[in-house]
Amino acid sequence: MDNVSFRTTVLPLSDRLFRLALRITMNRAEAQDVVQDTLLKVWEQRSQWEQINNLEAFAIATCRNRALDVLKRAGRNTKSLDEVDDVHSPMPNVQSSMETREEISLVRSLMDGLPEVQRTIMLLRDIEGKTYQEIAQALSISETQVKVYLHRARTKIKEKVKVKMKN
């Protein structure tokens, strides 16, 4: 990996990592702390940057793990990869925060209510424009799994939007 430096390669990832941390923690201050910890972690690993195949995927994975740790420490449980099929029960903290923020749009609240892994994949694909391969690498799952989770997320949004619009 040539010409890699913190300033030119790692620091430009900050906003992307912030959006990811924000979608997981749902809290700007916590998300900013997560990004700061993530970047410091990447910086500490600088002697191994040459060996890391995809530094961005490494940073995304670190950021996601840190954000999930924040949720666990705060007692705000998130769903494991095995539990993500529960379509109709979004995370309690997300649900309660959604109720207090009525100005948030229907779609935003639907997206916030998705299980974490679906939400993260939808963000990486639809907002950050990542390929299935890049997402699979960052989340350490197969491309097929990425497509399965994304398909579930999009279908859920589509169905809910249809129902809400009919009502």
């Binding site: 900050s14 906003d15 229907l106 779609v107 963000l123 939007v161």
Partner: peptide, 23 residues
């Protein structure tokens, strides 16, 4: 609304002094 909301989410940024703080 789905696509518009995703546009809004893409516009979320860290505070301006974050990069300086990290450096």
């Amino acid at each position: 609304q789905l696509f518009n909301e995703e546009d809004k989410m893409a516009d979320e940024h860290l505070s301006e002094d974050f990069a300086d703080k990290m450096l």
